[in-house]
C-alpha cells in the first residue's frame, strides 16, 4: 500500500472527505425551516404581524410567501429552497421592519434568526 502514500492521494482524499462531510451536513440541515421573531419598537413581541419572504437570485427578486406571527411574536416558514432571501415584517399600526437580508450556505438551510425583526412604529 506504499504507493498510496503520496501528496496526490492525501490532497484529493482530503478534498473528497471534506466534500463528503459537507454533504452529510447539508442533508441533515436542509429542511428549509426559517424561524424568527417580530418585536415592536419597544421590544415587545408582536402578534399577527405579516412577514413576507422574498427570493433573491443573481438576476431577479420575487415574492415567495407570507405568514403571520403567533402570540409570542414568532414566525416560521417551512420547506423553502432558497439561498438568498429577504424578510420583511409589517403590521397595521405598529409599523414596518426590514427588509432583512439573509444569505445561506446552501439551498433550504435551516435558520434561526437571532436578531428579531424590529417594527419601526410608523403607521
Amino acid at each position: 500500500m506504499g504507493w498510496l502514500k503520496n501528496r496526490f492521494v492525501y490532497t484529493f482524499g482530503g478534498i473528497a472527505l471534506a466534500i463528503l462531510a459537507w454533504n452529510v451536513w447539508v442533508v441533515l440541515n436542509d429542511d428549509g425551516i426559517i424561524r424568527g421573531e417580530v418585536v415592536s419598537a419597544s421590544g415587545a413581541p408582536v402578534e399577527g404581524a405579516t412577514v413576507k419572504l422574498t427570493e433573491r437570485t443573481l438576476l431577479v427578486a420575487r415574492p415567495r410567501g407570507e405568514t403571520l406571527t403567533d402570540a409570542d411574536g414568532r414566525f416560521t416558514f417551512t420547506g423553502h429552497d432558497l439561498h438568498h432571501l429577504f424578510l420583511e415584517a409589517s403590521k397595521e399600526g405598529a409599523g414596518h421592519a426590514g427588509p432583512l437580508e439573509v444569505r445561506l450556505y446552501f439551498k433550504g438551510e435551516n435558520v434561526n434568526l437571532h436578531t428579531p425583526l424590529r417594527l419601526d412604529g410608523t403607521t
Binding site: L58, H83, H84, R103, L104, Y105, K107
Partner: peptide, 12 residues
C-alpha cells in the same frame, strides 16, 4: 469576508 458569492455562483 464571506463566501456567499460562491453560494450564488454555485446555484447560478
Amino acid at each position: 469576508p464571506h463566501i456567499f458569492y460562491y453560494v450564488d455562483v454555485w446555484y447560478a
